[in-house]
Amino acid sequence: MHPFTYTRVSDTREALNAGRGGGRYIAGGTTLVDLMRETVEQPETLVDISGLPLREITVAEHGALRIGALVRMAEAAAHPKVRVLYPVISEALELSASAQLRNMATIGGNIMQRTRCTYFRDVTADCNKREPGSGCAALHGFNRSHAILGTSDHCVSTHPSDVAVAFAALEARVHLLGPDGERQVPFADFLLRPGSTPDREQALRRGELITAVEIPALPRPLKSGYLKVRDRQSYEFALTSAAVALHVRGGVIREARIAAGGVGTVPWKLPEVEQQLIGERPSESLWASAAAKAADGARALQHNRFKVELLKRTVERQLRIVGGTK
């Protein structure tokens, strides 16, 4: 690990000053400390933001749910409002990492977490994300866990977060605070596809701080849930996953919010699947025909071809679990 200076900040102004000066924010530290130890990350200054007042979950007047950036994963998952209004969020969180890590890690840090691609983590391997221009060892390497959607010739790694898949499905907004004030970014624009600049991962400006993630109000009743498929039953990242939220009234699907994880370079929203469902009545054949669209545009690599079929089945199963039949 490279040496670094350490400062603790107690208000957002102090944090922004430190951030503008090149300081790196540290929240739970579960991504950052790990990658610093591997020397993948080499910040010169750590700015400890854990004392900032960003640890609340509130319901805004218009019904939107705001989760503060420093809310721990465990706290968000256990929060009564989250459990009742958005089971898809609490399920995604409780299927993430371990109880220990969820006690440490924050919502802001979670959506900022970096890929688990082994070549990215191995500083002796070629990786355009870590070292732009060096190449992508995964493209023709062992790429079983890698992405089939949103990839480029420069990078094929997945975004590993589970709760980010729920946020993508629900069309959350990321609240940011920077030297020039506050702004909001739709979740779909917050995490960036690799293209030819895989080292640019978020639409975050220098020194900007995530203050909250906001879930817009959705029509009620809303049924939702998260399904995660992995190599072992727990404490493992997703091979595929599906976040599904459905609003059914009068026996007809009026709203559908669907995204997939483990398959995309970013959490993968599935608008074609959503479109297939709107205006239809829940049925086995509807789930199957809608889910058949889930892997449209997929580009499989040598070792992850199985994900194409697995993705469709994951989406189909989760549609059935959330939507039932009839």
Binding site: Y6, G29, T30, Q100, L101, N103, M104
Partner: peptide
Amino acid sequence: RHNACLTL
């Protein structure tokens, strides 16, 4: 419970 290895 926390992981002491990832705690500075």
